[in-house]
Amino acid sequence: MKRQTISLMLSPLLVPLASCGATAAGDSSIQGPADFVETNPFTTREVAKLDEPWALALLPGNAALVTEKKGKLKLVDLASGAVTDVTGTPTVAFGGQGGFGDVAISPAFEKDGTVYLTWAEAGESDTRGAVLGRAKLVREGTGARIDGLEVIWRQSPKVTGRGHYSHRIKFSPDGKYLFLTSGDRQKMTPAQDLTVNLGKMLRLTRDGKPAAGNPFAQKGGVSAEIWSYGHRNLLGVAFDGEGRLWDIEHGPAGGDELNLVKPGSNYGWPVVSNGDHYDGKPIPRHATRPDLAAPALSWNPVIAPGAMIICKCEKFPAWKGNALIAALGAQGLVRVGITGDTAREAERYNMDARMRGIAEGSDGKLWMIEDGAGGRLLEVVPR
Protein backbone atom coordinates (compact mmCIF):
# COMPACT_ATOMS: atom_id res chain seq x y z
CA MET A 1 0.00 0.00 0.00
CA LYS A 2 1.37 3.39 -0.96
CA ARG A 3 0.70 6.33 1.34
CA GLN A 4 -0.95 9.32 -0.28
CA THR A 5 1.61 11.96 -1.26
CA ILE A 6 1.65 15.16 0.77
CA SER A 7 3.15 18.20 -0.93
CA LEU A 8 6.78 18.57 0.15
CA MET A 9 7.33 21.45 2.57
CA LEU A 10 10.74 22.07 4.11
CA SER A 11 9.52 24.97 6.23
CA PRO A 12 9.60 24.25 9.96
CA LEU A 13 6.34 26.20 10.23
CA LEU A 14 4.36 23.39 8.68
CA VAL A 15 1.85 21.84 11.06
CA PRO A 16 3.82 18.97 12.66
CA LEU A 17 2.96 15.65 14.14
CA ALA A 18 3.82 15.08 17.80
CA SER A 19 6.80 12.76 18.03
CA CYS A 20 6.16 11.58 21.57
CA GLY A 21 2.37 11.61 21.50
CA ALA A 22 0.16 8.65 22.19
CA THR A 23 0.25 7.70 18.54
CA ALA A 24 3.45 8.96 17.83
CA ALA A 25 11.57 12.85 13.23
CA GLY A 26 19.73 17.31 11.59
CA ASP A 27 20.70 20.11 10.07
CA SER A 28 22.56 19.11 6.94
CA SER A 29 19.08 18.35 5.62
CA ILE A 30 15.47 18.44 6.80
CA GLN A 31 13.41 15.58 5.47
CA GLY A 32 9.84 16.44 4.58
CA PRO A 33 6.92 14.08 3.96
CA ALA A 34 7.90 11.00 1.96
CA ASP A 35 6.05 8.29 0.04
CA PHE A 36 6.49 4.62 0.73
CA VAL A 37 8.07 2.64 -2.09
CA GLU A 38 5.59 0.92 -4.40
CA THR A 39 6.74 -2.57 -3.44
CA ASN A 40 8.82 -3.48 -0.40
CA PRO A 41 12.03 -5.35 -1.29
CA PHE A 42 11.28 -7.81 1.52
CA THR A 43 8.57 -9.96 2.98
CA THR A 44 8.02 -10.80 6.64
CA ARG A 45 7.47 -14.02 8.55
CA GLU A 46 5.55 -13.85 11.83
CA VAL A 47 7.50 -15.66 14.53
CA ALA A 48 5.50 -14.85 17.67
CA LYS A 49 2.97 -12.46 19.19
CA LEU A 50 3.84 -10.51 22.34
CA ASP A 51 2.28 -8.01 24.73
CA GLU A 52 3.72 -4.52 24.25
CA PRO A 53 7.22 -5.63 23.28
CA TRP A 54 9.87 -2.93 23.66
CA ALA A 55 13.26 -4.41 22.77
CA LEU A 56 14.89 -7.59 21.49
CA ALA A 57 18.34 -9.10 21.75
CA LEU A 58 19.42 -12.00 19.56
CA LEU A 59 21.07 -14.98 21.29
CA PRO A 60 23.38 -17.67 19.95
CA GLY A 61 21.41 -20.71 18.89
CA ASN A 62 18.52 -19.10 16.98
CA ALA A 63 16.74 -17.53 19.95
CA ALA A 64 15.93 -14.04 21.17
CA LEU A 65 15.12 -12.23 24.39
CA VAL A 66 12.25 -9.74 24.20
CA THR A 67 11.19 -7.30 26.91
CA GLU A 68 7.52 -6.47 27.39
CA LYS A 69 6.73 -3.08 28.93
CA LYS A 70 4.54 -4.45 31.72
CA GLY A 71 7.52 -6.29 33.19
CA LYS A 72 7.95 -9.66 31.51
CA LEU A 73 11.04 -10.99 29.76
CA LYS A 74 10.38 -13.55 27.04
CA LEU A 75 12.67 -16.14 25.48
CA VAL A 76 11.60 -16.83 21.89
CA ASP A 77 12.68 -19.76 19.76
CA LEU A 78 13.11 -18.10 16.37
CA ALA A 79 12.55 -21.33 14.45
CA SER A 80 9.43 -22.66 16.16
CA GLY A 81 8.04 -19.45 17.63
CA ALA A 82 7.76 -21.00 21.09
CA VAL A 83 7.68 -18.32 23.80
CA THR A 84 8.91 -18.93 27.36
CA ASP A 85 8.66 -16.64 30.39
CA VAL A 86 12.06 -15.84 31.88
CA THR A 87 11.77 -15.75 35.67
CA GLY A 88 13.71 -13.58 38.12
CA THR A 89 12.88 -10.27 36.47
CA PRO A 90 12.57 -7.02 38.45
CA THR A 91 9.45 -5.09 39.40
CA VAL A 92 9.01 -2.24 36.93
CA ALA A 93 7.20 1.10 37.18
CA PHE A 94 4.79 0.51 34.31
CA GLY A 95 2.86 3.43 32.83
CA GLY A 96 3.14 6.05 30.13
CA GLN A 97 6.41 5.40 28.30
CA GLY A 98 7.84 3.51 31.27
CA GLY A 99 8.21 -0.14 32.17
CA PHE A 100 10.66 -2.74 30.98
CA GLY A 101 13.11 -1.20 28.53
CA ASP A 102 16.13 -2.51 26.69
CA VAL A 103 17.87 -5.87 26.72
CA ALA A 104 21.40 -6.60 25.49
CA ILE A 105 23.82 -9.48 25.84
CA SER A 106 27.37 -9.12 27.13
CA PRO A 107 30.14 -8.96 24.50
CA ALA A 108 31.43 -12.10 26.26
CA PHE A 109 28.00 -13.74 26.50
CA GLU A 110 29.10 -17.18 25.29
CA LYS A 111 31.54 -17.29 28.22
CA ASP A 112 29.73 -15.40 30.99
CA GLY A 113 26.03 -15.67 30.03
CA THR A 114 25.47 -12.08 31.20
CA VAL A 115 22.50 -10.04 30.03
CA TYR A 116 21.92 -6.32 30.60
CA LEU A 117 18.45 -4.90 31.16
CA THR A 118 16.96 -1.44 31.68
CA TRP A 119 13.65 -0.56 33.28
CA ALA A 120 11.73 2.24 34.97
CA GLU A 121 12.05 2.11 38.76
CA ALA A 122 9.73 3.80 41.25
CA GLY A 123 11.15 6.24 43.81
CA GLU A 124 9.80 8.32 46.65
CA SER A 125 7.06 10.96 46.33
CA ASP A 126 5.70 9.77 42.98
CA THR A 127 9.09 9.87 41.23
CA ARG A 128 10.64 7.43 38.82
CA GLY A 129 13.87 6.89 36.93
CA ALA A 130 15.55 4.45 34.60
CA VAL A 131 17.97 1.86 35.94
CA LEU A 132 20.47 -0.50 34.35
CA GLY A 133 20.96 -4.00 35.71
CA ARG A 134 22.84 -7.13 34.81
CA ALA A 135 22.32 -10.80 35.56
CA LYS A 136 23.20 -14.26 34.31
CA LEU A 137 20.78 -15.96 31.94
CA VAL A 138 20.29 -19.63 32.87
CA ARG A 139 18.48 -21.99 30.49
CA GLU A 140 17.47 -25.41 31.77
CA GLY A 141 15.43 -27.61 29.48
CA THR A 142 12.55 -25.54 28.20
CA GLY A 143 12.75 -23.05 31.10
CA ALA A 144 14.84 -19.95 31.64
CA ARG A 145 15.65 -17.56 34.48
CA ILE A 146 18.00 -14.74 35.32
CA ASP A 147 20.18 -15.13 38.40
CA GLY A 148 21.99 -12.56 40.52
CA LEU A 149 20.30 -9.46 39.13
CA GLU A 150 22.09 -6.33 40.34
CA VAL A 151 21.41 -2.68 39.57
CA ILE A 152 24.64 -1.08 38.34
CA TRP A 153 23.41 2.40 37.30
CA ARG A 154 20.52 4.79 37.97
CA GLN A 155 19.18 7.97 36.41
CA SER A 156 19.90 10.87 38.73
CA PRO A 157 17.76 12.46 39.94
CA LYS A 158 14.49 10.55 39.91
CA VAL A 159 11.70 12.92 38.86
CA THR A 160 7.93 12.94 38.42
CA GLY A 161 6.32 11.92 35.15
CA ARG A 162 6.39 8.78 33.01
CA GLY A 163 8.15 9.79 29.81
CA HIS A 164 11.52 10.02 28.04
CA TYR A 165 13.47 7.36 29.89
CA SER A 166 15.34 6.45 26.67
CA HIS A 167 17.54 3.77 28.41
CA ARG A 168 18.95 2.15 25.25
CA ILE A 169 22.09 0.02 25.61
CA LYS A 170 24.90 -0.31 23.06
CA PHE A 171 28.35 -1.83 23.55
CA SER A 172 31.33 -0.31 21.76
CA PRO A 173 32.71 -2.36 18.84
CA ASP A 174 35.69 -3.47 20.96
CA GLY A 175 33.34 -4.59 23.76
CA LYS A 176 35.10 -2.48 26.39
CA TYR A 177 32.46 0.19 26.96
CA LEU A 178 28.72 0.35 27.50
CA PHE A 179 27.00 3.35 25.94
CA LEU A 180 23.65 4.17 27.56
CA THR A 181 21.06 6.75 26.54
CA SER A 182 19.39 8.74 29.31
CA GLY A 183 16.42 10.89 28.26
CA ASP A 184 15.48 14.31 29.59
CA ARG A 185 12.40 12.80 31.34
CA GLN A 186 10.27 15.54 29.70
CA LYS A 187 11.89 18.13 31.99
CA MET A 188 13.93 19.74 29.17
CA THR A 189 16.42 21.92 31.06
CA PRO A 190 18.30 19.04 32.76
CA ALA A 191 19.65 18.19 29.29
CA GLN A 192 21.95 21.23 29.62
CA ASP A 193 22.91 20.56 33.25
CA LEU A 194 26.18 18.66 33.60
CA THR A 195 25.51 17.89 37.28
CA VAL A 196 22.73 15.41 36.36
CA ASN A 197 22.68 12.51 33.89
CA LEU A 198 19.30 13.30 32.28
CA GLY A 199 19.31 14.24 28.59
CA LYS A 200 22.69 12.64 28.02
CA MET A 201 24.62 9.96 26.16
CA LEU A 202 26.71 8.10 28.74
CA ARG A 203 29.86 6.02 28.39
CA LEU A 204 30.26 3.44 31.15
CA THR A 205 32.35 0.41 31.90
CA ARG A 206 30.65 -2.96 31.70
CA ASP A 207 30.04 -2.80 35.46
CA GLY A 208 28.17 0.52 35.17
CA LYS A 209 30.93 2.85 36.37
CA PRO A 210 32.06 6.03 34.55
CA ALA A 211 34.57 5.10 31.86
CA ALA A 212 38.06 6.55 32.11
CA GLY A 213 38.71 9.46 29.77
CA ASN A 214 35.14 10.76 29.56
CA PRO A 215 34.96 14.48 28.66
CA PHE A 216 33.73 15.72 32.05
CA ALA A 217 35.52 13.24 34.30
CA GLN A 218 37.23 16.05 36.23
CA LYS A 219 33.84 17.23 37.53
CA GLY A 220 33.30 13.92 39.36
CA GLY A 221 29.93 12.44 40.37
CA VAL A 222 27.49 11.61 37.59
CA SER A 223 29.21 14.22 35.40
CA ALA A 224 31.98 11.68 34.91
CA GLU A 225 29.50 9.39 33.10
CA ILE A 226 28.64 11.92 30.37
CA TRP A 227 29.82 11.46 26.78
CA SER A 228 27.56 14.10 25.19
CA TYR A 229 24.61 16.23 26.27
CA GLY A 230 21.72 18.37 25.08
CA HIS A 231 19.67 15.32 24.07
CA ARG A 232 15.90 14.82 24.37
CA ASN A 233 14.64 11.24 24.02
CA LEU A 234 17.25 8.94 22.47
CA LEU A 235 15.61 5.72 21.27
CA GLY A 236 18.21 4.38 18.87
CA VAL A 237 21.98 4.08 19.10
CA ALA A 238 24.40 2.35 16.73
CA PHE A 239 28.01 2.25 15.56
CA ASP A 240 28.87 2.49 11.88
CA GLY A 241 31.58 0.53 10.07
CA GLU A 242 34.17 3.17 10.98
CA GLY A 243 33.38 2.85 14.68
CA ARG A 244 31.51 6.17 14.85
CA LEU A 245 28.55 6.52 17.20
CA TRP A 246 25.13 7.64 15.94
CA ASP A 247 21.87 8.21 17.79
CA ILE A 248 18.30 8.88 16.74
CA GLU A 249 15.92 10.76 19.01
CA HIS A 250 12.43 12.14 19.19
CA GLY A 251 12.00 15.84 18.63
CA PRO A 252 9.07 17.78 20.12
CA ALA A 253 6.36 18.78 17.60
CA GLY A 254 8.62 18.13 14.62
CA GLY A 255 12.35 17.75 14.40
CA ASP A 256 13.24 14.11 15.09
CA GLU A 257 17.04 13.92 14.84
CA LEU A 258 19.78 11.62 13.58
CA ASN A 259 23.04 12.69 15.23
CA LEU A 260 26.67 11.78 14.79
CA VAL A 261 27.64 11.73 18.46
CA LYS A 262 31.03 13.15 19.43
CA PRO A 263 32.51 13.31 22.94
CA GLY A 264 31.84 16.51 24.87
CA SER A 265 29.44 17.89 22.25
CA ASN A 266 26.23 19.74 23.10
CA TYR A 267 23.32 18.81 20.79
CA GLY A 268 21.28 21.81 21.83
CA TRP A 269 18.08 20.58 23.46
CA PRO A 270 16.04 22.52 24.62
CA VAL A 271 17.89 25.64 23.45
CA VAL A 272 17.46 24.76 19.77
CA SER A 273 15.44 22.24 17.77
CA ASN A 274 14.06 21.78 14.26
CA GLY A 275 10.64 21.36 15.88
CA ASP A 276 8.49 23.51 18.18
CA HIS A 277 6.81 23.03 21.55
CA TYR A 278 3.49 21.17 21.57
CA ASP A 279 1.64 24.37 22.50
CA GLY A 280 2.96 26.00 19.33
CA LYS A 281 5.62 28.13 21.03
CA PRO A 282 8.56 28.31 18.62
CA ILE A 283 12.03 27.01 19.42
CA PRO A 284 15.06 28.58 17.72
CA ARG A 285 16.40 26.39 14.92
CA HIS A 286 19.79 24.70 14.97
CA ALA A 287 21.00 27.08 12.28
CA THR A 288 20.74 29.98 14.75
CA ARG A 289 23.38 28.43 17.03
CA PRO A 290 26.37 27.21 15.01
CA ASP A 291 28.25 26.75 18.30
CA LEU A 292 25.98 23.79 19.12
CA ALA A 293 26.19 20.43 17.37
CA ALA A 294 23.59 20.16 14.61
CA PRO A 295 21.97 16.87 13.61
CA ALA A 296 22.98 15.16 10.40
CA LEU A 297 19.31 14.78 9.49
CA SER A 298 15.96 15.81 10.90
CA TRP A 299 12.36 15.08 9.95
CA ASN A 300 9.38 17.39 9.66
CA PRO A 301 6.82 15.81 10.04
CA VAL A 302 8.32 13.30 12.43
CA ILE A 303 8.83 9.58 11.89
CA ALA A 304 8.82 8.87 15.67
CA PRO A 305 11.71 6.37 15.77
CA GLY A 306 11.51 3.27 17.93
CA ALA A 307 15.01 1.86 17.42
CA MET A 308 17.87 1.87 14.93
CA ILE A 309 20.70 -0.26 13.58
CA ILE A 310 23.44 0.49 11.08
CA CYS A 311 23.25 -2.48 8.80
CA LYS A 312 26.03 -4.85 7.75
CA CYS A 313 23.30 -6.28 5.53
CA GLU A 314 24.63 -9.53 4.15
CA LYS A 315 21.07 -10.36 3.16
CA PHE A 316 20.41 -6.89 1.69
CA PRO A 317 23.79 -5.88 0.20
CA ALA A 318 22.44 -2.66 -1.34
CA TRP A 319 21.68 -1.45 2.20
CA LYS A 320 25.17 -2.00 3.61
CA GLY A 321 26.21 0.85 5.90
CA ASN A 322 22.72 2.37 5.93
CA ALA A 323 20.79 3.24 9.06
CA LEU A 324 17.62 1.17 9.35
CA ILE A 325 15.03 2.77 11.61
CA ALA A 326 11.99 1.05 13.10
CA ALA A 327 9.44 3.86 12.93
CA LEU A 328 6.43 4.21 15.20
CA GLY A 329 4.82 7.27 13.63
CA ALA A 330 5.77 6.39 10.05
CA GLN A 331 4.54 2.82 10.67
CA GLY A 332 7.30 1.07 8.84
CA LEU A 333 11.01 0.85 8.14
CA VAL A 334 12.95 4.00 7.21
CA ARG A 335 16.30 3.58 5.44
CA VAL A 336 18.86 6.38 5.65
CA GLY A 337 22.03 6.62 3.60
CA ILE A 338 25.10 7.95 5.41
CA THR A 339 27.92 9.69 3.55
CA GLY A 340 30.70 10.99 5.77
CA ASP A 341 29.07 13.24 8.37
CA THR A 342 25.89 13.74 6.33
CA ALA A 343 22.74 11.67 5.99
CA ARG A 344 19.63 11.57 3.82
CA GLU A 345 16.54 9.39 3.84
CA ALA A 346 16.81 6.91 0.99
CA GLU A 347 13.53 4.97 1.09
CA ARG A 348 10.56 4.29 3.31
CA TYR A 349 8.82 0.91 3.54
CA ASN A 350 5.22 0.54 4.68
CA MET A 351 4.57 -2.16 7.28
CA ASP A 352 1.07 -1.01 8.35
CA ALA A 353 2.06 -1.05 12.03
CA ARG A 354 3.96 1.00 14.57
CA MET A 355 7.40 -0.59 14.53
CA ARG A 356 9.20 -0.61 17.88
CA GLY A 357 12.46 -2.55 17.45
CA ILE A 358 14.99 -3.92 14.97
CA ALA A 359 18.03 -6.20 15.22
CA GLU A 360 20.50 -7.84 12.86
CA GLY A 361 21.90 -11.28 13.57
CA SER A 362 25.47 -12.43 13.06
CA ASP A 363 24.12 -14.43 10.11
CA GLY A 364 22.79 -11.24 8.50
CA LYS A 365 19.11 -11.93 9.19
CA LEU A 366 16.93 -8.96 10.14
CA TRP A 367 14.29 -9.08 12.88
CA MET A 368 11.70 -6.48 13.90
CA ILE A 369 9.06 -6.09 16.59
CA GLU A 370 5.78 -4.24 16.40
CA ASP A 371 4.55 -1.94 19.14
CA GLY A 372 1.53 -2.50 21.37
CA ALA A 373 -0.69 -5.37 22.49
CA GLY A 374 -0.27 -8.33 20.15
CA GLY A 375 2.90 -6.83 18.69
CA ARG A 376 4.53 -9.40 16.43
CA LEU A 377 8.14 -10.49 16.23
CA LEU A 378 8.93 -10.64 12.52
CA GLU A 379 11.72 -12.07 10.43
CA VAL A 380 12.47 -9.73 7.50
CA VAL A 381 13.34 -11.72 4.38
CA PRO A 382 14.53 -10.45 0.98
CA ARG A 383 11.79 -10.67 -1.62
Rank of each mutant, 00 (worst) to 15 (best):
L204C: 06
D247C: 13
S7D: 06
L14K: 11
R203A: 06
H277I: 07
T142A: 15
G361H: 07
A191R: 01
C313Y: 02
K320T: 14
L58V: 02
A353D: 08
D112G: 06
P90T: 09
G99L: 03
K158I: 07
M368V: 14
A63N: 06
I283T: 13
P252K: 02
T91G: 05
M201D: 07
G243Y: 00
L8Y: 13
G161K: 07
R134K: 14
A191W: 01
A304D: 04
F316H: 09
P12H: 08
G98P: 08
W119I: 06
N300H: 15
R335D: 13
E345A: 02
G163Y: 05
E46R: 11
L65W: 00
V151D: 07
N233F: 03
R354S: 08
V380F: 00
V92S: 05
N350D: 15
S228G: 11
G143F: 10
I6Y: 11
G255T: 08
G123R: 05
N62V: 10
R232M: 03
G337Y: 04
R289Q: 11
A93V: 03
N259V: 10
N40K: 07
K72S: 13
R139N: 06
G21V: 04
T189Y: 07
T91Q: 12
G129S: 12
S172D: 05
D27G: 12
T127V: 13
T118M: 05
Y349L: 13
S11N: 06
V131Y: 07
A55Q: 01
Q186P: 03
G71M: 01
